[in-house]
Design a protein around this nucleic acid. Sequence first.
DNA 1: CGTGGATGTCATCGAGCGATGACATTTTAG
DNA 2: CTAAAATGTCATCGCTCGATGACATCCACG
Lengths: 95, 95
Amino acid sequence: MLIRTPAELGAVLRDRRKKLKLDQSTFAKRIGVSRQWVIEVEHGHARAELGLILRALDALDIRLDAGTEQAPAREAARPAVDINAIVAKARKKKA
Amino acid sequence: MLIRTPAELGAVLRDRRKKLKLDQSTFAKRIGVSRQWVIEVEHGHARAELGLILRALDALDIRLDAGTEQAPAREAARPAVDINAIVAKARKKKA
DNA sequence: CGTGGATGTCATCGAGCGATGACATTTTAG
DNA sequence: CTAAAATGTCATCGCTCGATGACATCCACG
């Protein structure tokens, strides 16, 4: 599952928690946070702490993979010397 | 790359940022945070906000994938009644 | 040599997280 | 239906995040 937003992450956590038959209280204690935290995160709380999130994922055996995808996003996805970028930045006279 | 800790996440962000030839200031502005934030996150700041982290990843075209398969972890991956969990909760001693 | 860019450090400060505990609502089981 | 469990909501509070701006290094380059 691709994670793009806090809400998606929350959904993944909730589904996984339920599959493991854990209630919020048990889950919270297992990762060392309050039940309130679990509730908010499962609801997509955007400002949750990264460290706690990673602990939660680990507790549920969910692995996170960061891929520098190959999507033809914008540009500059290619390595190699990027003269343009350098010049552009140098030429940057800001607002 | 598997992400298990804030430090690993920070390393991924830094590497990717450099590959795209962006300096911290430009990167920070692009995702709407302070340069200080970029510095701390790249150094593995564990309490960074989830939402900002996701924005940073997106800005660098790094996709996050949450996978549940793969590890033949312990057990309990299967539904069915989980006596242990039930007992453990009932046994909650803690002060 | 010295100028400028990039990165890291420090201090300050307002804002919101996360903990806690009580209570409300929803769901599950008998 | 009824009781209990699970989940959601509220209010309070200490603590630290993240922003800002000033400096300090370090390094590439002319």
